[in-house]
Write a protein that binds this DNA or RNA. Sequence first.
DNA 1: AAATTATGTCAATAAGGCTGACATAATTTC
DNA 2: GAAATTATGTCAGCCTTATTGACATAATTT
Lengths: 166, 166
Amino acid sequence: MTDADPIKTPLTLDDGVDFAIIEHLFFAYRDFTADPDAILDEYGFGRAHHRVLHFVNRLPGLTVAELLEVLRITKQSLARVLKQLIDDGYIVQVPGPRDRRQRELYPTQKGRDLALALALPQSRRIRAALEEAEPGDSAAVERFLRAMVNPELRAQMDKLPNGRSK
Amino acid sequence: MTDADPIKTPLTLDDGVDFAIIEHLFFAYRDFTADPDAILDEYGFGRAHHRVLHFVNRLPGLTVAELLEVLRITKQSLARVLKQLIDDGYIVQVPGPRDRRQRELYPTQKGRDLALALALPQSRRIRAALEEAEPGDSAAVERFLRAMVNPELRAQMDKLPNGRSK
DNA sequence: AAATTATGTCAATAAGGCTGACATAATTTC
DNA sequence: GAAATTATGTCAGCCTTATTGACATAATTT
């Protein structure tokens, strides 16, 4: 019955696995999402609403199909969340100019304000983390995180406005 | 009704928020967790099982209370997941030597093997990401991720074995 | 006119969280 | 030794976010 015996030694770096970064990512992401989660609670929203609101603000006018592509969830999962955001006046739908079947999604001022309020504590946390860092660390972190994404999905990231838009 | 009007300009860096790193973290973490998720599916397990199995392997002998502390979930949430892992022979409980009320949690060989199998694709992804990086980037990334964690929770991270154990 | 497409909606299911209440056994305190 | 506290387990019920499958509607394309 040696297979049912307890193993008393911990998994360590010996095992050829980079547990340091694996665990750092876990803890960092947990606290990173805790900031907006607390705000969302007050509105009766969850993390799903945050993601929708975020991308509608970053890519105003995107269609439902495009949003599903970015979020990688199903239409039915999106439906409830999107409906709430529309009913509560955070997002509006506008019929597509060329194809009137499409619904272009735009934030309202209320939706813009909330998106910004949710991003602010996250941005503050990032800025604080970079204050203790060496110059160049910011670029290194961004390069690393980008390289962690599946190559075929990096194109999606490039569609997001990165420069200072006029 | 200007508040219900669609806003057509995107949120950008102008708004004083570091969207680049916010979004990079989102996409990176999504793909980072997709690797083990696919494996867990085959076992009928979810992400919750992964987290339990991971920390039991990294801190063998920890008690239920300590595990709850690390995971920051409730006893009832842990119960279901832990029970499955024990019933299926991935984890065993051993009565605490000093306090026999406590249940020390240890992985079995089967549990050790699965924990390692789940960590491997994540480690491979990290290694691949760092291959394109400059020397020193790895340390910069680790510093950054650590600084992203709430200060009072960093002590928890220090309890994890980091060196090469003898 | 027929087929396809974009979207919306209904019903059912599942995972993984939560709270509250209660049970048991072991330890600590008085 | 009795009482209080602690560590754990378990039951019942609820919520959110996701899933799949099926079907409806309107608009566009063929």
